[in-house]
Design a binder for these strands. Structure first.
Lengths: 246, 246
DNA sequence: CGTCTCTTTGAGTTAATTCAATGCTCGTGG
DNA sequence: CCACGAGCATTGAATTAACTCAAAGAGACG
């Protein structure tokens, strides 16, 4: 089944260096004093890590699988999805380079993870993470902070799906991707997933996503120099749309 | 502003005894050995608790407020919501008797909490919870388990909002409420919120919710002996609808 | 028993979907 | 090297599920 999906990636590599500092810092607001400790933890994590490589559309783990590892994305991106029996699919989130996935202390995965393109991951064995949290109590706290951050992101996603229009949804995603890539000017932003992936994240059809993208292009709010690269021409105007002010 | 909302509850009291065991056990699958410890924690929590009472539509806390307390619902119910500037509202979840809210180690609340009817809460001062987690390392773990459970519920909610039809959404909510009330037969299930609240949870309009409820009533899958009480006549048929099998 | 609020039902509208072509990119093999 | 085929992406036309607007019911409470 997956064999058919393991086609070579048809587009330019989407990997890019993470713009964020290493390790746990993704989930740390600030707290300079904890920086050293965060380094320790990052190092400890690094020691137990296994490098893995996945091709476009390859399954990393499935809903219901035993949770043997947690992961950090090195390059590429992964989608976390739920599949309904009739083929409908909802993507609960994308994990971009530098971001974590798993780390939930669950016996089984609650969703499926798939690579949206060629992707490199660091895998951290669950057992060793647990051992680590025994030794380093701060790891527990970080875990909580990580989960709290995830809950926050999901709340925004709920609003998007429940109450935003198609135009607001697409715009929100574009801004989210730009923000997570650390882009605040007209620098190119990678869109490391297919239009179908965007649609399944946004609760829309692929056609609607395309139409909105075309429209945003037409009114010169974005450019799409390549299929998987966007340039934002006006963050302010885009933000206004995402917030429903327009 | 809130004064206008503090009207007396026009309906019969919706409070009911929790059908679930006390304390943290809501988030514990089983683990008999931990039961004693769970009792300890419940007792410890109880010691730092403050009882609070809220009227229908009263705000418990607002998005952005300092997180001074976490809460457990004793009776009634609360809604966790996000408000958009133009009045649109998305409810991210309901907390029913015996369930917890907060416990996320955040400085500020990320959503607004409001009583959906007359509601009694136990409030746990955040500082004391933190002190408690220092003393009892197991509290940390429970916190994780609690957050993981919340993430799981939110994932299901994402699927509901992103990919289910109106009929599937309403049916899912009814089943969720029945399940959380511990009801598996034709016993009455409380619906401790307004139709508008249901709509805002489901990402629908109040009219659509009403129409679907009427339809389910017409085909004899549910009865609505009172506005805020439902009796399920066929869990199987309802489940089939919720899962999109129908 | 009148009023206020919430719920339900009906009729017409619309945002987003479905269905159907067409276009674009890339990799492969003649 | 170019043509061909496969897989996405885009655009257009017709359809529909859910929405908006409007009005009529149903409780609750003074």
């Amino acid at each position: 089944m997956t064999a058919a999906l393991r086609t070579p990636h048809p587009h330019a590599p989407l990997a890019r260096p993470s713009l964020k500092p290493e390790g746990w810092s993704v989930i740390e607001g600030s707290a300079g004093a904890r920086q050293v400790q965060a380094q320790d933890e990052a190092a400890a994590l690094h020691r137990i890590a296994i490098r893995m490589h996945f091709q476009r559309n390859e399954t990393i783990f499935s809903e219901g699988d035993d949770a043997k590892y947690s992961y950090k994305v090195v390059s590429g991106a992964i989608r976390l999805c739920k599949h309904l029996s009739d083929g409908r699919r909802q993507i609960a989130g994308f994990m971009l380079p530098g971001e974590f996935c798993g780390f939930m202390h669950l016996d089984q995965h609650r969703f499926t993870a798939e690579a949206t393109g060629d992707t490199v991951l660091m895998a951290y064995p669950q057992r060793q993470i647990e051992a680590l949290s025994e030794q380093m109590p701060s790891v527990q706290r970080h875990l909580n902070a990580f989960l709290a951050q995830r809950v926050r992101a999901m709340q925004d996603h709920l609003v998007l799906l429940g109450r935003l229009t198609a135009r607001e949804r697409v715009t929100s995603l574009l801004l989210l991707l730009a923000e997570r890539a650390g882009v605040r000017d007209a620098t190119p932003v990678p869109l490391p997933m297919s239009r179908q992936d965007m649609a399944d994240y946004l609760g829309l059809t692929i056609e609607t996503v395309c139409r909105v993208l075309s429209e945003l292009k037409k009114v010169k709010l974005i450019e799409l120099p390549e299929l998987h690269v966007m340039r934002v021409k006006s963050f302010d105007a885009l933000t206004a749309i995402a917030e429903g002010t327009v």
